[in-house]
């Protein structure tokens, strides 16, 4: 009944990966931290967009805004 895994370094490595306490936390931190960094960067990018030298301001996207999309 007992599952005997083949003696394969890859399988041993994968088992070590899932079975070692702490690695899960590192992975969670990487995922969480990565998302936070990406979100922060995106928000900065959007905010920085305000520095472009464009006189028009739109309260909401209008066809006038989108018609220039291909050129801008």
């Amino acid at each position: 009944m007992h599952l005997d895994y083949p003696d394969n370094p890859l399988i041993e490595f994968l088992y070590w990966l899932i079975n070692t306490p702490g690695l899960g936390g590192i992975m969670a931190s990487v995922v969480g931290g990565g998302i936070l960094l990406a979100v922060g960067a995106t928000l900065r990018w959007i905010s920085k967009g305000g520095q472009a030298l464009e006189p028009e301001e739109f309260a909401y996207p209008t066809p006038a805004l989108h018609s220039h999309e291909d050129t801008g």
Binding site: G24, G25, A28, V31, T42
Partner: peptide, 27 residues
């Protein structure tokens, strides 16, 4: 759960996906 988290446990999978989902949906 972070300091000793083990990836074999479904609870850790949950920590990963709920964290991603929470941060994603807040954004």
């Amino acid at each position: 759960v972070i300091l000793n988290g083990r990836l074999q446990s479904p609870i850790l999978w949950d920590v990963l996906s709920v964290t991603a989902y929470f941060l994603g949906s807040i954004t």
